[in-house]
Design a protein around this nucleic acid. Structure first.
Lengths: 234, 234
DNA sequence: GCTTGTGAAACGTTTCACAGCA
DNA sequence: TGCTGTGAAACGTTTCACAAGC
C-alpha cells in the first residue's frame, strides 16, 4: 500500500518526500526553526551553510538536521553544505508558506488585538482577513494594522469564510466558549485551528488543531526552575 | 549513583518522584493539561475520576495517564480512580504552582500589553510584578490590570529583580533584541525565561527557556492542513 | 465488576558511523 | 579535506497485559 516514488535526485517536485510515509512530528517543528534561522542568515548575506552550523545555531546535532531534511529530499551538496536561498525556498514549499493563507480570528479581546497587530504573520504569508466576536460592544469596531478590519458577529461566519476563501482559524476566546466556536468553524469548512483558549478541544481527526496555552508554558517553566533549585540544593 | 528512596505509599512528601531520575519531557507537559482538566471537573463538582475518563477528555490513553502520574507517586485507588481535589493538590505541588511566582515582562508592545491584561496568569499563581521597555515613549506609562504597573527602563532591572524577588522573565520584544535581553536577565539572576520573540536564544544549560513563536505554530498548522489536502486528493 | 501501578514489549526518534561525492 | 545522505544501533516513550486491590 505504501506508494513508491522514484527518487528524484535534486530536482524533485515540490514537497517530494523521499519516501511516502510519516514524517516525525518533532521534525516538522524543527523545519520551521531551520527556516527562521535560514531567513536570518540570508539577510546577513550568507550563501551556504552546513548541517553542523545550522544545528549549532539552534541546539541540535548535525545528523538531526540532515535526517530532518532528508525526509523531504536531497537538498545538500557534499563538501559544500546547503545553499541558503535554495533551502529557504524548499522549506517554504514543504511547510506550505510559499503561498498566502487566509486566516480568521475569533475573539477581539486583548490577545486577539495583539494578534491582529502582529506584523510577523504577514511576513510569513498568513493574512488575518476577518475578525469575529459576539460582544455587541465590539461588533463594528475597526481593529488591527493598515487595512483595519471590522469586527463582525459570528452570524456572518459562513458568508465570509466562503467569500474570502479562509482556510484556517485562530481562537482567542474564553475557555468556556472555545468548544462551541471550534464546532462552528469546522461546520463552515475551516481546515485547521490555532487555539489560544485554555481548553482542550474535541474535533474530528482530520482537522489539525494546535493549542497554545500561555499558563501551561509558565507551568512548564516553573517545574523546570523548581527542579533545578532542588538539584542545586543537593 | 541513583539515589534510592523507600517507596512511601500514599503519604509521600511533596513532589516525591517514585524514583530519583528523569521524567520524560512530554509527561510534564501533560501534567499541566491534566491539572487544567481536573480544575474544570472540580468546579463541576466531580469527586473522583479514572485514568480512562481523564485520558479520553484530553485524547490520551488510560495507561499514558497512569504512567505519567506514577512518575511522582501513587495517587490513585484501585476500583475508584483518583480523588479530584487530592490530585489537583498533588499536581500543583509537582508543577510548583502551589506557591506564587513573581514574573517580570520585558517589552510593552501589543503582545506585552495583552499578557499584562491576561487574568489567567494570576489564577495560576503567576504574578507579573514589573514591566520593562527601553522605548522612551513607553517608559512611565501605566499598563495592565487593577494594580497598574509603571513601565520601567531596563536600567532598573537589577534593583527591581532583587527588591521584588523575581524568578522568571517573559520576553516580548522584537527578535533582534531578544538575545541581549535574555543575557541581561540571566545576569541579574532570573532562573527561567518564556520567550515570545521569534529567535533562538543562547543560554547556559541550567537556565530553562521555553519559546513560543506564533508564526511557527501557524506554519505547523499550514503543513498539516496542506498534507491533509494532498492525502484527500489521492 | 472496575481500577490502579508496573514490568515487558512495541514503537518512534535520535545518534552513530561510514560510504560516496565535491 | 569537508560535507551529505543513510542504514544500523542506541535511546526514549508509549502501549500492552496483568497481578493486586477496592
Amino acid at each position: 500500500m505504501t506508494g513508491e516514488r522514484a527518487s528524484q535526485s535534486n530536482n524533485s517536485g515540490p514537497r517530494s518526500p523521499g519516501k511516502e510515509g510519516a514524517v516525525p512530528g518533532p521534525a516538522v517543528r524543527r523545519l520551521s526553526l531551520y527556516l527562521r534561522e535560514l531567513e536570518g542568515l540570508y539577510k546577513r548575506g550568507d550563501e551556504t551553510i552546513s548541517s553542523k552550523q545550522l544545528g549549532e545555531a539552534l541546539g541540535y546535532t548535525d545528523s538531526q538536521v540532515r535526517k530532518d531534511l532528508a525526509y523531504f529530499g536531497q537538498f545538500g551538496h557534499p563538501g559544500i553544505g546547503y545553499h541558503v536561498d535554495g533551502l529557504i525556498a524548499r522549506l517554504r514549499c514543504i511547510l506550505g508558506t510559499d503561498r498566502t493563507w487566509n486566516v480568521l480570528l475569533v475573539g477581539a479581546g486583548n490577545l486577539g488585538n495583539a494578534l491582529l497587530s502582529y506584523r510577523g504573520f504577514n511576513k510569513k504569508g498568513f493574512q488575518i482577513v476577518a475578525v469575529f466576536d459576539d460582544d455587541p460592544q465590539k461588533i463594528g469596531q475597526r481593529l488591527g494594522l493598515t487595512p483595519e478590519l471590522e469586527v463582525l458577529p459570528l452570524s456572518q461566519l459562513e458568508r465570509i469564510v466562503s467569500e474570502k476563501d479562509i482556510q484556517m482559524g485562530i481562537i482567542a476566546v474564553p475557555a468556556n466558549d472555545a468548544q462551541s466556536i471550534v464546532d462552528r468553524l469546522i461546520a463552515v469548512g475551516i481546515k485547521g485551528v490555532l487555539n489560544f483558549a485554555p481548553a482542550s478541544l474535541n474535533v474530528p481527526p482530520n482537522i489539525p488543531v494546535d493549542s497554545v496555552d500561555l499558563t501551561v508554558h509558565l507551568e512548564q517553566l516553573a517545574f523546570r526552575v523548581f527542579t533545578n533549585q532542588i538539584a542545586s540544593e543537593k
